[in-house]
Simulated scan of single mutants.
Amino acid sequence: MQKLQFPSYSFRFKNSENKIAIFDEIRKKFILLTPEEWVRQHVVQYLLQDKNYPKSYINIEKLIKVNELNKRYDIVVYQPNGELFLLIECKAPEVKITQQTFDQIARYNLVLNAKYLMVSNGLNHYFCKIDFENEKYVFLEELPNFGE
């Protein structure tokens, strides 16, 4: 797999029927290793190891309803009080992050109301805080650490 713009993390892999799977600590199972999953697993390790988010507050790939359509978010992080803190959209490294990507995560966030958003293709990462009052994104250099 391609080298991404994250620190080096160690992962568990399994080869089954000539397909490689990567162990997901959050879902507690092996997941088929696709380019997008490679990015997702790096983001999870970034949250756990670099930002100190507890595993128990992280949720991956759950169904949500957006305008009567079933959609699936990539990663969310909850706060201790159960409110949604962070919504993350992961793309494969070859997928360019465009306005369309931000529109997608903004639509999901209309339903979820996270305070922070992250978009990453593993090579480029964008972080923003939602200014609900003025209805705009405020771009950040990085995400806050857990508890900040």
Rank of each mutant, 00 (worst) to 15 (best):
residue 115 K to H: 05
residue 62 K to Y: 13
residue 46 Y to C: 00
residue 122 G to F: 10
residue 136 K to L: 03
residue 50 D to E: 02
residue 46 Y to E: 00
residue 47 L to Q: 08
residue 76 V to C: 03
residue 69 L to K: 15
residue 123 L to D: 04
residue 135 E to N: 11
residue 66 V to P: 12
residue 120 S to N: 05
residue 74 D to K: 13
residue 61 E to W: 06
residue 66 V to Y: 10
residue 75 I to V: 10
residue 16 S to W: 03
residue 74 D to I: 14
residue 75 I to S: 01
residue 76 V to F: 05
residue 69 L to H: 12
residue 108 Y to M: 14
residue 140 L to N: 02
residue 74 D to M: 14
residue 110 L to Q: 13
residue 125 H to L: 07
residue 126 Y to F: 13
residue 114 A to M: 07
residue 110 L to S: 12
residue 91 K to M: 03
residue 128 C to P: 02
residue 95 V to C: 12
residue 20 I to G: 01
residue 134 N to T: 00
residue 115 K to A: 05
residue 140 L to E: 01
residue 67 N to R: 14
residue 127 F to N: 01
residue 14 K to N: 11
residue 88 I to C: 12
residue 68 E to H: 09
residue 48 L to M: 06
residue 127 F to M: 00
residue 139 F to W: 05
residue 57 Y to T: 12
residue 124 N to A: 09
residue 54 P to G: 00
residue 107 R to M: 12
residue 45 Q to F: 08
residue 121 N to M: 08
residue 90 C to M: 07
residue 41 Q to W: 01
residue 108 Y to L: 15
residue 22 I to G: 04
residue 41 Q to L: 04
residue 21 A to H: 14
residue 41 Q to D: 00
residue 137 Y to C: 11
residue 31 I to S: 05
residue 17 E to G: 01
residue 43 V to G: 08
residue 70 N to D: 08
